[in-house]
């Protein structure tokens, strides 16, 4: 994404304007420094402390927390679960939401407004209660999903209570809950596609698919990267839903990293903020690395495409 924006052509301007430029970024920089950079730096500092629960005793222990983290199977298990959730749900959300957005972007589609609202609704539904509803929907003995399975002669599935299926079930509910957000990202992005282009193409006799691949897609490419990244970040922070639906269980099968960090920091029988901070820093570094490599690959592929 850094790449896509970096190449935006800026109109050459004189000195008078450049002062305004700094005035415009200043508020963001100041707030960013206070509420993102400072906490990040603090987290790195915390991660080198032995800091238990109520914070009077803080002793500097260097890299001890990191040593422990590297050999903590639950942490790496949680990273594995989180990565799995990202790898599975992000592409599904991006594709399904794009399809939805394209259909709902058509002003001539009957009931479009109503439908847009309907698909946005799960986003605002209170997570604590969503957990209860989904418990009924996915109930192993009386839920409608299992009733449907029974109709086609399949055995009942304990969707949330078995460590084999709990993660898949959480992922499905996660996609359901947050699809509306990705949809409105896409709707916003679609507004940069000039309508006249469509009209011209339609007159030329281009079908829906050709219009999509030849007009919409190329114009959306920069947004694919931005929205993809936003969706990855949101998915990394999957937290409330897991906490209310499974609490990370059964037997760690849905323990995502944010939940594990939270447990270490605040919910353990003996909370350990220093260790939790170390886990947070490690996880952050890990993700930045993964995303960095992905962006590099995207750039390479696109660079090649441009050469050819």
């Amino acid at each position: 994404m850094a790449a896509t924006i970096a190449h935006a052509p800026g109109p050459p301007r004189g000195r008078r304007v450049s002062r305004w430029v700094y005035v415009f970024v200043l508020p963001t920089l100041v707030l960013f420094g206070m509420y993102t950079i400072w906490p990040s730096v603090s987290s790195i500092f915390y991660s080198m402390l032995e800091w238990r629960g109520l914070g009077v005793d803080r002793t500097f222990t260097g890299l001890a927390n990191y040593e422990r983290a590297f050999s903590d199977p639950l942490f790496w298990g949680s990273v594995r679960v989180t990565v799995l959730v990202i790898v599975v749900t992000v592409p599904i959300r991006l594709a399904a939401a794009l399809l939805l957005a394209i259909m709902l972007n058509n002003p001539r589609l009957p009931l479009a407004r109503l439908l847009r609202t309907a698909f946005f609704i799960p986003v605002v539904a209170t997570t604590a209660i969503v957990g209860i509803v989904m418990g009924f929907v996915l109930d192993p003995s009386s839920g409608p999903v299992n009733a449907a399975l029974e109709l086609v002669g399949m055995p009942a599935v304990d969707f949330l209570g078995s460590s084999d299926t709990a993660l898949s079930s959480v992922m499905v509910v996660h996609v359901w809950k947050w699809l509306g957000i990705t949809m409105i990202y896409w709707l916003a992005a679609l507004q940069t596609v000039p309508v006249d282009l469509y009209e011209a193409a339609a007159i030329d006799g281009a079908g829906a698919w050709r219009r999509f691949t030849h007009i919409t897609m190329p114009l959306l490419v920069p947004f694919v990267v931005i929205i993809g990244m936003l969706t990855v970040v949101e998915t990394m922070q999957i937290f409330d839903l897991v906490l209310t639906m499974t609490g990370g269980g059964p037997f760690f099968s849905t323990l995502v990293t944010e939940v594990y960090i939270y447990q270490q920091a605040f919910a353990a029988s003996n909370p350990n903020l220093g260790y939790a901070a170390a886990l947070g820093v490690l996880f952050g570094v890990f993700t930045v690395l993964v995303v960095g490599v992905m962006l590099l690959l995207v750039r390479l592929v696109r660079g090649k495409g441009a050469d050819a």
């Binding site: 906490p39 603090s42 970040v233 990394m236 937290f239 920091a265 947070g280 952050g284 930045v288």
Partner: peptide, 14 residues
């Protein structure tokens, strides 16, 4: 872009 990926769960403390 890089700080987007830092887990913010503990930011509330600092």
């Amino acid at each position: 872009a890089a700080t987007m990926f830092i887990p913010t769960g503990l930011f509330v403390v600092p």
